[in-house]
Structure formats: structure tokens, C-alpha cells
Design a protein around this nucleic acid. Structure first.
Lengths: 134, 134
DNA sequence: CCGTTATAGCTCGGTAGCCGATATACTTCG
DNA sequence: CGAAGTATATCGGCTACCGAGCTATAACGG
């Protein structure tokens, strides 16, 4: 069954969205956009591909189907396994964040005192990233 | 130049390893193993592929070469851009961790009081993950 | 009345990072 | 002398993700 362990960001956020309550596909898209401050918009290919995969792996499962305003809503729910995996992944990420933060802090400190042998960046948090602003 | 934004875990840890001080390939492997508590062992294909890619993208750059005990050591150094990207990625992960933690906590709380309409998992943190224990 | 937007579902091909295996070479140890 | 450890690098395959496109209904605007 090989639950794929380093969850990629989209997958991680899908599970996170479902942790609160069962949701349908389109709802997940808007929820993920919200909890990532609009930084990540799930593509249909990513969403439904991930949903199928996660269902196969037993991390999520179909919850129910509703018809609201003539449109079908297919709800998914986080399983116990899914909850456990999400918790484990969150811990892993927390450790990574901590390790990186510590090293970055040390780097900044080094840049502050006179010991900077190198240009020593001011560590500006504003970078232009891929798929950035228009 | 499209700096690839959601850094995968191996890439993230390579940058983290280099944040402290310039290191050579093999040193990065051991360092990453250390700061991930042995959970992740970088494969050569991953390491050198990533190093080439990150060099092209300007996140790391060659630092110096040494010959220690007849063996070549090629050192890499984190650039200013690399530092900024690592910082930005760390922030992104921190937010994701926070969002997931919050939802997981809410879920546990719901399971504790009597309001559990669903089986309500005990949220066991022990999962068998891919490439799990021997 | 018709076109556009929003909601809601799904499919398919291409891209690219990671894994696993493999190769080379030098040093040290048994 | 061979095995293990250090240190570099390449190549093929897997697969998650992206991007684009498709269908359908409801609601709004011209």
C-alpha cells in the first residue's frame, strides 16, 4: 500500500482542509486557497487525482452525496489513518521548520556582528517566486 | 528563471544543511541524515541532480575545492537568493504546520467531548508509513 | 433570449523532481 | 588482496503535479 510519505504541499493541504469537516471537491479548492492565503490554487487534475489516490490509500473516503441547487456535491471525509498520517506529516514539517529557522537565525546573527567575511545578505523575506504576481 | 516554489523535502533539507556553512556533497548527505534523525537518506541521484539544478537557479554556488586524503571535495555555498528562498519556504511551511495543527487540535477536542457523532478516532499517532520500520 | 460567470464534476498529456541502480576512483583496514 | 568507507557522477523509470480542455446546471446581465 505504500502510503507516500513525504506528502507534497497540495496533498498536505487537501488533508488539512478535510480535517475540519467533510467537504466536496470544489469546497476543498476554495478552502485550500483560503488557508494558503491564495498562494495555492488547486488544479482539477491535482485535486481529483489526489482524491482518487488518497481514497485508494485509505486516507480519505467518500462521505455522502448531496444535490444543492441542481448540482451534485460529492463529499469526502478524513479517515482515522488519514488523520494519523496528517499528524505525523505535520510533526515532520515542524521539525524541518525548526531546523531551518535555527540555521537561518544563526546566519543572520553572524551577519549582524562584525564577523561577516561574506557580503552577508540582510535575509530579505521578499522573493519573487515561480508563478508569482502578474 | 522560475525558481521552483514548493520545494520538495530533499531540496529543502539540502538548502538547510548549507545554511550553516559551505559543505561538500557527501557532507550534505550525512548532515541531512542527522537533522532528519535518519529519516531521510539522500540518494546520489537526488543530491547531485538537485545541486546542479539549484546552481542553475542561483540558489547555491560552488565555494571551493579541497583534496583531503587524496579525495576531492567540492564545496557548495548558499547564495543570498538561496537564503531568501529558504526563509520564504520556511515561512510557508510554518503556516501550513500551524493550519494543520489547529484543525487537528479541534478534531481531537471534538472527539473528547460527547459531541462525537462519528466513530471518532483516538487519533493514534502511530502509523505505519512507507519505508517504515524494519 | 442568449452569452457570460460561477459552481461542480472529470480526463488526459506533459513536465520534472526523486528514487534506485550503477559506475569510477582512492584510502584504509582486515 | 579484497572489502568497506569516502566522494564523485550518470541514467532510466516512477509518479505527483500542472495546465488545458470537456460537460452540465444555475444565475445574472445585456
Amino acid at each position: 500500500m505504500t502510503t507516500p510519505v513525504p506528502l507534497r504541499e497540495p496533498t498536505f493541504l487537501i488533508l488539512t482542509a478535510l480535517a475540519r469537516e467533510p467537504m466536496h471537491g470544489y469546497g476543498i479548492v476554495t478552502e485550500v486557497a483560503a488557508l494558503s492565503d491564495g498562494r495555492l490554487t488547486l488544479r482539477p487534475g491535482t485535486l481529483y487525482g489526489a482524491l482518487d489516490r488518497l481514497t485508494d490509500e485509505g486516507l480519505v473516503e467518500p462521505d455522502r452525496e448531496e444535490i444543492v441547487g441542481g448540482r451534485l456535491r460529492r463529499y469526502y471525509r478524513l479517515t482515522d489513518t488519514g488523520t494519523a498520517v496528517l499528524a505525523a506529516e505535520t510533526e515532520r514539517l515542524r521539525r524541518n521548520v525548526e531546523a531551518a529557522s535555527q540555521r537561518l537565525r544563526a546566519r543572520t546573527a553572524r551577519a549582524s556582528d562584525g564577523s561577516a567575511a561574506r557580503p552577508a545578505p540582510a535575509v530579505r523575506p521578499a522573493v519573487r517566486l515561480a508563478g508569482g504576481p502578474a
